[in-house]
Design a protein around this nucleic acid. Structure first.
Length: 490
RNA sequence: GGUCUCUUCGUCUAGUCUGGUCAGGACGUCAGGUUUUCAUCCUGGUAACUCGGGUUCAAAUCCCGGAGAGACUACCA
């Protein structure tokens, strides 16, 4: 039988990294089994609906290279793929369940109080309906009478009070619970929309989903879904529940990954300058292991090596430092032309004197950045030298002092003034000559000029690279300024 | 509270099924080297089996118990 998996996000307006990972695993599993990957939009919560949110989902999946075989935008044989368009279907199946005695009408009205309490959730209210709701045992006549009166109702699942329910999860193994611990959850809301708990079961069945892949937060409600499958007489699909993703708090504790930990949506990460393929690569490794020591993968490679056996049970902590490293690996692996094109928009050099020399600059940046958003900060000194300590000229390793710096800067300035052809090769050769003439090494010679040119201890590229980028005029200006600065402090 | 789940370096993890390498790799970090600086790169160091029993010649691995953590307990998904 062909494997079919699905990703079923609700349109909230942004893609949490945990959701994206779920989509990724569902996609990888389907592709590794030569099966189909389906996208379904779960928009049954009218209150939560965000305009354009479905567009965000499409764009994210597209950018992340997670391609669905069926979905609202690409079609397929199991549509519609948007739950709000399937409203009639859920009603039909809810009614079937009532006929089978596995569900019932409930006429209890939700009050403000109950709604509030449910949200505060302190004392973990037992189901507010459970104790005082008699709808479960209403006679057929009574139900008909109330229906005829037009009373508002919901349809609840009639969970058996006895026995146990067992299911098998490919990651967590066999799980059994006592039915009496399960509540009569709402299947159909009073607005006629299904709850997630009902819609996902009906849709997964109707859409022929063979492997249900989702977060482990659904593990404890899964027995109720199993009961639904059993009531309908449907075959139960395979389950693959995924461990959660946590974030590290400033105090060292760990909690569910949220905005307080940093960027947690795919879009935000991309805006920060992380490559989509690097994000995918990194999150693939959060809760899954190829079981060897390889860490850098392309999407195609992930499809090849992905296996359920490598999935983990315990939650993982999202580590921005490691993401930086993975991103840097991807950045460095790409051709320099591609890097230059990609980084250009982040660099801020457009329209500045650096734009014509961007290719040279990009080559300097490529091995030095973890993420593209770091680039402007690393280039700032090229536009203007920020105030710096004169002590930067003093460096033990290069035997550099204020006195030697004055001397070397004077020699450097003289050399620069003699140079006509302003290219990197000529510059290097000229200074190699200066070093030889004065019987000093290249490194110590260039130390003070780099400080004067940048005001920084660390710069992308060496002195001659900076000179080339700045041009002769600006180079001389900065060298002179550096010279005067030292003299003032001698 | 109830139900379910989880537990190897600071972090991601290999090893657990089929007991037997100084518990391996990566990120981070520290030290050294290369590099005109930084980065890259190279070398080395750092650091873990939640605890307690039991089985065994031998336990991260099998069994029992405790502890801690998380999820769920919504007319949200």
């Amino acid at each position: 039988m062909e494997v079919r998996t699905r990703f079923a996000p609700s349109p909230t307006g942004y893609m949490h990294i945990g959701n994206l990972r779920t989509a990724l695993y569902a996609y990888l599993f389907a592709k590794s089994q030569h099966g189909k990957f389906v996208l379904r939009i779960e928009d049954t919560d009218q209150k939560r609906y965000v305009e354009d949110a479905t567009r965000v989902i499409y764009e994210t999946l597209e950018t992340a290279q997670i391609h669905h075989d069926e979905g609202p935008d690409v079609g397929g044989d199991y549509g519609p793929y948007v739950q709000s368009e399937r409203k009639a279907i859920y009603k039909e199946y809810a009614l079937k369940l009532i006929e089978k005695g596995a569900a019932y009408y409930c006429f209890c009205s939700k009050t403000e109080d109950e709604a509030d309490e449910a949200h505060e959730g302190e004392e973990a209210k037992e189901n507010p309906f459970e104790s005082d709701c008699h709808c479960r045992s209403l006679s057929a006549e009574e139900v008909q009478r109330r229906l005829a009166e037009g009373q508002s109702y919901v349809i609840r699942q009639k969970v058996p009070h006895e026995g146990t329910t067992t299911f098998n999860d490919l990651v967590y193994g066999e799980i059994t619970v006592e039915n009496e611990t399960l509540d009569d959850q709402i299947l159909l809301k009073s607005d006629g929309m299904p709850t997630y708990n009902f819609a996902n079961v009906v849709d997964d069945y109707l859409m022929g989903i063979t492997h249900i892949i989702r977060g482990s937060e659904y593990l404890s409600s899964n027995p109720k879904y199993i009961l639904l499958y059993q009531a309908f007489g449907w075959d139960v699909p395979c389950y693959i529940h995924l461990p959660l993703i946590n974030g590290k708090n400033p105090d060292g504790t760990v909690s569910k990954l949220s905005k307080r930990h940093g960027a947690v949506s795919f879009q935000a990460l991309v805006e920060e300058g992380y490559l989509p393929e690097a994000i995918i690569n990194y999150i693939a490794l959060l809760g899954w292991s190829p079981k060897n020591e390889r860490e850098i993968f392309s999407m195609d490679e992930l499809c090849e090596v992905f296996s359920v056996a490598g999935l983990h049970k315990s939650p993982a902590v999202f580590d921005y430092q490691k993401l930086d490293w993975v991103n840097a690996q991807h950045l460095q692996a790409m051709p320099v032309e591609k890097f230059a094109a990609l980084a250009f928009d982040y660099s801020g050099v457009k329209g500045t004197f650096l734009e014509p020399k961007w290719n040279k600059l990009a080559a300097l940046m490529q091995p030095r950045v973890n993420k593209l958003s770091e680039i402007p900060g690393k280039l700032a000194f090229l536009y203007e030298v920020a105030p710096y300590e004169v002590e930067l000229y003093v460096n033990k390793k290069n035997k550099s002092t204020l006195e030697t710096s004055v001397d070397l800067l004077e020699k450097t300035i003289a050399a620069v003034e003699r140079i006509d052809r302003w290219d990197e090769e000529t510059l290097s050769e000229a200074f190699a000559q200066v070093a030889a003439d004065n019987n000093i090494k290249y490194g110590p010679l260039m130390w003070p000029s780099r400080i004067a040119l940048s005001g920084l201890l660390a710069t992308p590229g060496g002195s001659t690279d900076i000179m080339y980028l700045l041009g002769k005029e600006e180079t001389l200006k900065r060298l002179q300024a550096g010279l005067e600065y030292i003299r003032e402090h001698q």
